Amino acid sequence: MGIERMSLLYWAPLGVALCHLIEEFAWPGGFRQWYAWYRPDIAASLTPGFLLRINVIMILVAVWVGYTGPASAGAIISGWLVLMSILANNALFHLVATFRGKRYSPGVVTGCLLYLPLFVMGVIHFWMTQSVSLTAMVLSVALGSLYQAWSLHTHKRRSRAHGMSG
C-alpha cells in the first residue's frame, strides 16, 4: 500500500468524525434534545460545555493520529484502533438506541455507514499487514470499547452529584 493511501487511512477518522458531528449537531442535528428524550435520568449531565469539550478532544486525537500517520506505526496504530473502537462503539450505541427508542438517533447514519466500515477495514488492514501485534490490537480495541461504559458512569455520577436526575 502506497504512503498516500496509508496517510489517508490515518486521516480517515477525522473525516468520519466531522461528518458524524454534522449529523448530530447541524444537519439534521438535534442530538442533545434526542438524548434528553432517550435518557432523561442523566440528560442534564450532557451540557453544551461537556459536549464541546469531549468533541474537541476527539477531534484533537483524530488530528494527532492523522498528522503522525504511519511515521511511528506501532503507537499510532494503537491510537487509531483506540479512537476507531470508541467511534465504532458510538455507532453501536446509536443503532441500539434507535431500535430501543423506535426513533431516529442523530448520528446513527454516519455511525453505521462510516464508523463501522472504517473500523472493520482498519482492523483487517492492520491484521493482514501485521502492522501491530495481536496483543496491542486487542488491548487497543478493548480500551476504546470501555469508553461507552465510562461515559455512562460519568453522566450518572455528574447527575447524582448535581441533583440532575429526576
Rank of each mutant, 00 (worst) to 15 (best):
I3C: 11
L9H: 07
L9G: 10
Y10H: 04
W11H: 12
W11A: 11
W11N: 01
W11G: 05
W11M: 04
A12R: 06
A12L: 13
L14N: 03
G15V: 07
V16F: 05
A17E: 08
A17Y: 11
C19T: 10
C19P: 08
H20V: 00
H20D: 02
H20E: 06
L21G: 10
I22S: 13
I22T: 09
E24C: 08
F25A: 03
F25H: 07
A26C: 15
W27F: 15
W27C: 11
P28T: 02
P28L: 04
G29H: 10
G30L: 06
F31I: 01
R32S: 09
W34V: 07
P40C: 01
P40T: 04
P40F: 01
D41S: 11
D41A: 06
D41G: 08
I42V: 15
A44Y: 00
S45D: 07
L46E: 13
L46R: 12
L46N: 15
F50G: 08
R53F: 15
R53H: 13
V56A: 09
I57E: 10
I57C: 09
M58H: 01
A62P: 00
V63W: 03
V63P: 01
W64V: 14
W64F: 15
V65N: 02
G66C: 08
G69C: 03
P70I: 13
P70Y: 15
A73V: 13
A73G: 11
G74M: 02
G74L: 07
A75S: 09
I77E: 04
S78I: 06
G79K: 05
G79T: 08
W80T: 02
W80C: 02
S85V: 04
S85Q: 04
S85F: 03
I86K: 00
L87I: 09
L87E: 04
A88W: 01
N89I: 04
N89M: 12
N90W: 09
N90P: 11
A91P: 02
A91Q: 01
F93S: 00
V96K: 11
V96M: 10
V96L: 05
A97P: 12
T98D: 10
T98M: 05
F99C: 13
Y104D: 07
Y104S: 08
V108A: 05
T110K: 04
T110M: 07
G111W: 00
L113T: 10
L113P: 05
Y115D: 08
Y115N: 11
Y115C: 03
Y115R: 06
L116T: 07
L116C: 11
L118T: 08
V120M: 12
M121K: 14
M121I: 12
G122H: 05
G122W: 00
V123F: 02
I124R: 14
I124K: 14
W127Y: 14
W127G: 05
M128G: 09
Q130R: 09
V132N: 12
L134Y: 05
T135A: 10
T135P: 08
M137D: 00
S140R: 00
S140T: 05
V141N: 00
V141E: 00
V141L: 00
G144Q: 00
S145W: 06
S145E: 12
S145H: 15
L146Q: 11
L146V: 11
L146S: 15
L146G: 15
Q148L: 14
Q148I: 15
A149F: 13
K156N: 12
K156M: 04
R158T: 07
A161S: 15
H162V: 07
H162K: 13
H162N: 14
S165N: 10
G166V: 12
